[in-house]
Amino acid sequence: MELSTPAPTTKGPSRWFTGDVWFDVVAAPPAPSRLRVNLVRFAPGARTFWHSHAVGQSLRVTQGVARVGTRDGSVVEVRPGQTLWCPPDEAHWHGAGPDGFMEHLAMWETTDARDGSETTWAEEVSDEEAHR
């Protein structure tokens, strides 16, 4: 067994997020595990940029209401206790609605390369796309 030492809370970088976002690494065990879990907190209106994950991503909302959008224009609201699965390579974004904070667990796996290439980041989500 191996007990991890908590890393400090990190501010989400502006190259991946619009608005104020903070995250804590919950799980990033050594190989051969590929599991990654972050607790992510979004201020009202904050959101990710468009992105996709090579082997998919699960989002478990713990507080507030998440909004998750896809390239076809669909936006789904996810409430505390609900988990949403984003399939492999599906471009999506997620964040808080305009009126409240939101917190979720983001869960995904690395690829065999283990170099961060499991997530492909794209452009910023426009206000129009986020407020559909």
Rank of each mutant, 00 (worst) to 15 (best):
S4D: 09
T5F: 13
T5I: 12
P6S: 09
P8G: 11
P8H: 13
T10M: 07
S14L: 08
R15K: 04
G19K: 00
V21K: 06
D24T: 12
V26G: 10
V26Y: 02
A27Y: 00
A27S: 15
P29D: 11
P30T: 06
R34Y: 14
L35S: 07
P44H: 00
P44Y: 00
G45M: 03
G45V: 02
R47E: 08
T48N: 05
W50V: 13
H51K: 03
H53N: 06
A54D: 11
V55T: 12
T62D: 03
Q63G: 05
Q63N: 04
G64S: 04
V65Q: 10
V65W: 01
V68A: 06
V68Q: 08
V68K: 10
V68Y: 01
V68P: 10
R71D: 07
R71H: 04
G73Y: 08
S74F: 01
S74L: 14
S74T: 15
V75F: 01
V75G: 08
V76R: 14
V76A: 12
V78S: 12
V78E: 07
R79L: 05
R79E: 11
R79Y: 10
P80N: 13
Q82K: 09
L84D: 03
P88D: 02
P88S: 03
D89W: 14
D89K: 13
D89L: 14
H92G: 02
H92I: 10
W93D: 01
G95T: 07
A96H: 00
P98L: 15
F101A: 15
M102S: 04
H104E: 12
H104L: 08
A106W: 04
M107Y: 05
M107Q: 10
E109A: 07
T110G: 08
T110D: 15
T110R: 06
D112N: 14
R114T: 06
G116H: 12
G116R: 03
T119P: 04
A122C: 02
V125Q: 05
S126I: 08
D127P: 07
D127T: 06
R132T: 07
